[in-house]
Write a protein that binds this DNA or RNA. Structure first.
Lengths: 228, 228
DNA sequence: TCGGCTAAGGTGACAATGTCACTGACCGAC
DNA sequence: GTCGGTCAGTGACATTGTCACCTTAGCCGA
């Protein structure tokens, strides 16, 4: 968690996609021009009215990318983890249209910002960088495909079980209100409440205000593994 | 509709994103290396087990990109029209993961295939080509965001009315079975049947086997314009 | 410490959508 | 013609979403 480790000469090693096959000159350019910044949790990194001007690389923390519908409900599209990049925002830079999605720092972040001109020049000069960018794109698009599949075709109890497991990250607990979970899945709070009651009835979880303890992760995983 | 018009010296003019700001050398390279092909309707251009090896540009026709869930139901993600490109397939080329989506020629097509090495070199040498590619990406991602919003938050009658209008393209009729429309929207045939009956009861449409006549497009558009 | 404010969560009725099983209607091949 | 398959209609039911309203837990100032 120390920031000392991110002196400007070694952060590239944190990115699997950049540390392999990247030309030395490109590597130097990134280290020279990439600006390391600390961002507090809760910051909106991009969104309607906040056009991004950089390619963001994440050294530490998590960014939640979500979409808010006109009716005020929202759904989480994907998360950007440390070692990944917010590539979809780069498309925004060049886009003819505004994005509907917004990116929010879920934790305190340490980021590297690559200015647009540098991004553009690296794309031009470095096959390794191009591969990095397109691979990252591909991952995000796959994420979006998965979201569409889940929203359109998956039962809500299965999706909720999956999300509880994901959010717990093995800690055995999830800090989130029912409304938070509803926003994760793009559904209504009452639906989450009912499903959680059912999970509780089966002894899989225990609830307290704003907190859910996973008592039987195995059962939840079994449900999450079901296919419609 | 004649293919004579696509002699290898002028097709670029058909692509708004390519005809403006493209370097002459790049233009020549595209014309020299891009291979024009005719593809019959119904052909699967890419999909599971059909990794694409080219960037596809569409001179004529329409490509439907859809996703099939494990349960066998599918949903249309977007369509590629003449003058656009199948850029998402390029991410597939570089991806670590397979795509779940498949692209199907909805009509007879005339395409230009850009081989991977040429695509890569153009990305490197041409800012104009880069802009073209990223703009196309951006458009598709925006499409996916819209699909997610619709599936998660829009009423089915509104979505059906929108789709009927889109598919009719002003012709006043839609050639599609109820099952086809269900696949468009990612829902069940019975749901479409019931909604169409309601539209018919209101005098907005007339149905015959595999065919729907739009009698009152204005009313359908009014419904389609509603927001949840 | 008390009271009240606010966010979180619970509940029941109902509407909308999805699932299932089955039926009949239409259409082309023979 | 009739046969077989696709297309569409239907009712019962399950699941999910919506709405209105309520209770409860925690916080915070008086």
């Amino acid at each position: 968690m120390s920031t000392k480790g991110f002196a400007s000469d070694n952060w590239i090693a944190r990115f699997p996609g950049l540390s392999v096959g990247l030309e030395p000159a490109v590597r130097d350019r990134l280290l020279r021009e990439g600006r390391i910044a600390h961002v507090p949790a809760g910051t909106m990194l991009f969104g309607p009215g906040q056009p991004p001007t950089h390619l963001l690389l994440l050294l530490e923390g998590t960014v939640r990318v979500q979409q808010t519908s006109e009716s005020g409900r929202d759904i989480v599209l994907y998360r950007v983890e440390a070692g990944q990049s917010c590539v979809l925002t780069t498309a925004c830079l060049l886009a003819y249209e505004d994005y509907l999605a917004e990116g929010i720092a879920e934790t305190d972040l340490i980021t590297v910002a690559i200015p647009r001109p540098v991004f553009d020049e690296l794309l031009a000069t470095s096959p390794g960088f191009r591969t990095f960018v397109f691979t990252a794109y591909s991952r995000r698009i796959t994420d979006l495909f998965r979201v569409i599949d889940e929203v359109a075709f998956q039962r809500i109890d299965i999706r909720l079980a999956q999300r509880l497991i994901d959010l717990s990250r093995g800690s055995g607990a999830v800090h989130a209100t029912h409304q938070d979970l509803a926003s994760e899945l793009g559904t209504a709070r009452e639906v989450v409440s009912r499903q959680l009651q059912e999970f509780q009835r089966r002894g899989w979880i225990a609830q307290s205000r704003g907190n859910i303890a996973l008592l039987d992760s195995t059962a939840l995983e079994a449900l999450a593994a079901e296919r419609s």
